[in-house]
């Protein structure tokens, strides 16, 4: 059941990624419609699977495996929100492949599926804490996508080359503005996630709050990067290229906090 699901979902996300990229190389509006609806289909399938798994296993987000799958789902959720609110489907070119990669990683981690989960992790604290943090990650990935789109479009404008990509990518002001909003949403979610995590340690005796956990340190560092960027934008009017670069730096920090810390540093966080 799991592998059938994963194979289908991987195919759907791969197809949607290819269609999104195809749109950027051909400009065919029909392709973008297909790409969008295929992604919607993948999202529905993915949501159903997460719910089923939750019901079946009795816990959610207790493994790398589950959490990465959730991250992919969150990325798609953010993409659909952006597409719905702004009609900017081009962001799909950057984020749908990211969701595909996350799903692929989850697929390779499937073996973890049956490891025993301590009971103190089988509760809503874990679900609230990590799902909010992962939604924040997804928003930061979208901001990263907008940063890339900004830089490409700016390059095209400076080179005075009005190619197809120039026509299809959103205006500089728009990429900048929506990217900024994604960061704002991400920071709010991340703040909530950190607070939930801190409260959790107060109520559950098996987990002690600690500042020296590497995951906590890097999470806070990542959070600071974004907060700093937002403040400077507010005060000095940083925008455009600088926002784009900080979205990329922030994304690198997210990636390290999520993956790097667990590979290279010890932590009480399993993921």
């Amino acid at each position: 059941m799991n592998s059938l699901f994963f194979h289908t979902l991987l195919l759907v996300y791969l197809g949607a990624s290819i269609l999104h990229i195809l749109f950027l190389t051909t400009g065919n509006q029909t392709v973008t419609k297909f790409a969008y609806w295929l992604t919607v289909g993948g999202f529905v399938l993915h949501s159903a699977f997460i719910l089923l798994r939750w019901q079946h296993a009795g816990h959610l987000m207790a493994h790398w495996y589950d959490s990465t799958s959730f991250l992919a789902w969150a990325i798609i959720l953010i993409y659909l929100c952006i597409a719905h609110l702004t009609h900017l489907h081009t962001i799909g070119v950057f984020v749908v492949p990211a969701a595909f990669i996350a799903t692929l990683v989850a697929y390779t981690l499937q073996t973890q599926e049956n490891t025993a989960i301590p009971t103190y992790l089988q509760n809503y604290w874990l679900i609230a804490h990590s799902s909010v943090i992962f939604l924040a990650y997804a928003a930061f990935i979208a901001a990263f996508g907008f940063g890339l789109m900004y830089l490409i479009e700016e390059k095209k404008i400076r080179e005075k080359q009005h190619t197809l990509i120039f026509n299809l990518l959103p205006a500089l002001g728009r990429s900048d503005e929506i990217g900024h909003k994604c960061i704002l949403v991400g920071v709010i979610l991340m703040t909530m996630g950190i607070l939930i995590g801190a409260l959790w340690t107060q109520y559950v005796k098996e987990i002690k709050w600690t500042w020296v956990d590497s995951k906590v340190i890097f999470t806070i560092a990542t959070w600071l990067i974004y907060v700093l960027q937002l403040s400077i934008r507010q005060i000095l009017g940083w925008r455009g290229r600088k926002t784009a670069y900080s979205a990329i730096v922030g994304f690198a920090a997210v990636l390290f906090t999520y993956v790097g810390v667990n590979l290279f540093l010890p932590s009480i966080h399993a993921f």
Binding site: G27, N28, Q29, T30, E153, I157, H162, L164, F166, N167, P170, A171, L172, G173, R174, E177
Partner: peptide
Amino acid sequence: TETNIAAGAVSISYAAVELAKKIFQ
């Protein structure tokens, strides 16, 4: 919808307006 036959300004003043929209939206 299937071709880009209508894309791109074909006069200088329109090209300028189109560029402005690509910067400011």
